[in-house]
Design a binder for these strands. Structure first.
Lengths: 256, 256
DNA sequence: GGACGTGGTTCATTATTTGAACCGTTATTT
DNA sequence: AAATAACGGTTCAAATAATGAACCACGTCC
C-alpha cells in the first residue's frame, strides 16, 4: 500500500463509536509502526484532516474534511436535497430510514433518521453497506451499470446470517424483482431480525447513485407493511431523483 | 513535502468554481509531475476521496470525504447546530451571513446564507479567511488562546487593501475592542467596499472555535446598522455556543 | 499531414518512508 | 513508595517507495 493509502486508512479508523483515538491505539488498529503512524498523523494534522486535543492528546477528524465535503456537497447537493424526504419517510413509517450514496464498492450511509421509539433498528452514519446483503445494495445493483453488477457478483459474497443470499443467481433474481417493483426487500440479509426495503435514487444518466431505505424489526412487520413502505420509499426516491436532476424525466425512464 | 501532503494539496485544488479538473490541469496547478499526480489520484480514488467521471475522465471530490465529514459532524454538530441561526440572522439583517470554523491557521467558511437581493457580498463555502484582516478572524483572535494569537501576530500579516491592519499593536487594539463589545468590526480589511461584523462561537473551555459574521456593502451601511448587526451576531453566537455546550454557562464566562 | 493537447504508462534513479530502540512522562500495580 | 507498564514522541541506518523524462495512443484543430 502506498503512503497516501496508509494515511487514509488511518482516517478510516475513526468511527461514530470511536471518534477520538490515541497514537498507540491508532498504531495498533492500523498495524503500522508507532513512528509511521505519528508521521502520518502529523502530515494529516498539517492539512487539517485531523486535529489533536491539546489536553488529552487524542486525535480526531479535522475541519479540513468538512471543508472539502462541503465543496463537494455544494456542487452536488445529494444529502441536502434528500434529508427532508428522508425525514418525511421516517415520520410516515415510524421506522428507521437511512440514506446511502455509492462510493467505491460499497454504499456509504450519509444520513439516518431514527423513530422516537425504543425498539428500532439502529444504523450509524458512516456505516458501509455491502451490496449483496442489504436492501439498499440490492436495489442499487438493480439500477447500476453492468460493470458494477459484475464486479460485485464476481467478488466474494460473505454470508452475514443464515439468510444472506450468496448465490449470484439468487441475487440476480432479487435484483430483477426489485427492478420490476421499484423497491428491493432484504429479509435478515445483514442482521438477524431486521427486514428492510429500499428504493434507488437515480442520476441524470438513469443509473443509481444512492438509495433510501426503511429498516425495521421483523417481528412487527407484516407483508402489508413491506408493500406500503416500499411504495413510500419509491415515491421519496423519485422525488429526490427529480430534484437532483431538475425534473429531467429521461433520467427516470429506467425506473418507470 | 511528504507524499500525503502532496495528495491532500491535490484535493485542495478543487474549489466551488473549479469542482472538476483534468489530469494535466491538476499536474499544472499542483506543480507535480503528471505521473506523480496520476499516482496520487489513483490512490485517492481507491479510497473514495476522489471520483473520476467515466465519460469526461475529469476528477472530482469523492464520497469518502462526505462520509468522514459526517462522522465528524455527528460527534461535533457545529454546522448542523448553527445553520438555523445563521439563516435567522441573514433574514434579520438582509445581508450575507457566513459561518466559519477554525482549522489550522485560518478560519474555514462552512456555511453561507445570501440575502435575496442583487447587490450583496458574495462569500463561498470552503473559502479560507485570514485572521488579521477579517471581522471573523479578529473576533476569533479576541477569544483565542494566547498561543494562537502570538502565532498569528508573529507571522507575516499581508495587506489585502489599503485598509488592512498589519501592525500587531493595531490588531491587538481591535481585538480588545471586540472583546469588550462582544463583536468585531472589519472595515474593508480584506476587500474594498465591504464592511463586516462578527461574533465568536465558544467551545466548552471558553475559547473560540468558530465565528458567525455579517458582511455588507459599505455604501449602504450606517453606524447604526453596524451596532445592530453586531448585537444580533453576538446573540446568535451565544445561542449556538449554548446549544453546542449544553447550556454550560461556565463556557460563556469570557464573553460575558 | 503535422503540430498540439489530452489521459495514461514505464523503469532506472533518487529521495522518502520505515521501525527497532530509545527517552521522558504518566498512570497503575505491587 | 518502589516497580511496572503504558503512553506520546524521537532518532537514524536500512529498506522501500516515490519520482519524472521519455514514451504511447487518441482526439482535434490548422
Amino acid at each position: 500500500m502506498g503512503t497516501v493509502g496508509k494515511a487514509i486508512s488511518l482516517l478510516e479508523l475513526f468511527t461514530l463509536d470511536q471518534p477520538e483515538l490515541g497514537l498507540s491505539d491508532l498504531a495498533r488498529r492500523s498495524g503500522f509502526d508507532k513512528a509511521t503512524t505519528r508521521r502520518l498523523l502529523v502530515a494529516l494534522t498539517g492539512h487539517g484532516f485531523v486535529e489533536q486535543d491539546t489536553a488529552t492528546r487524542l486525535y480526531r477528524l479535522g475541519a479540513g474534511l468538512s471543508r472539502l465535503a462541503r465543496i463537494r456537497e455544494a456542487r452536488f447537493p445529494f444529502v441536502q436535497t434528500a434529508v427532508p424526504l428522508v425525514r418525511d419517510l421516517a415520520v410516515a413509517t415510524a421506522e428507521t430510514v437511512h440514506l446511502s450514496e455509492f462510493g467505491l464498492d460499497r454504499l456509504v450511509t450519509v444520513h439516518v433518521e431514527h423513530p422516537a421509539r425504543a425498539n428500532r433498528v439502529n444504523v450509524d452514519i458512516g456505516q458501509l453497506l455491502p451490496l449483496h446483503s442489504t436492501a439498499s445494495g440490492l436495489v442499487y445493483l438493480a439500477f447500476a451499470r453492468d460493470e458494477a453488477v459484475n464486479s460485485c457478483l464476481g467478488g466474494s459474497l460473505e454470508a452475514f446470517t443464515t439468510h444472506t443470499l450468496t448465490e449470484p443467481a439468487a441475487i440476480a433474481h432479487c435484483m430483477a424483482e426489485a427492478r420490476e417493483r421499484g423497491y428491493s426487500i432484504c429479509d435478515q440479509g445483514l442482521e438477524e431480525g431486521v427486514i428492510s426495503v429500499a428504493a434507488a435514487i437515480l442520476a441524470a444518466d438513469g443509473f443509481a447513485l444512492g438509495t433510501i431505505a426503511v429498516a425495521a424489526p421483523k417481528a412487527r412487520t407484516t407483508p402489508a407493511d413491506i408493500a406500503q413502505r416500499g411504495l413510500a420509499a419509491v415515491a421519496a426516491a423519485r422525488e429526490i431523483s427529480m430534484r437532483l436532476n431538475g425534473d429531467n424525466l429521461q433520467a427516470l425512464r429506467r425506473q418507470a
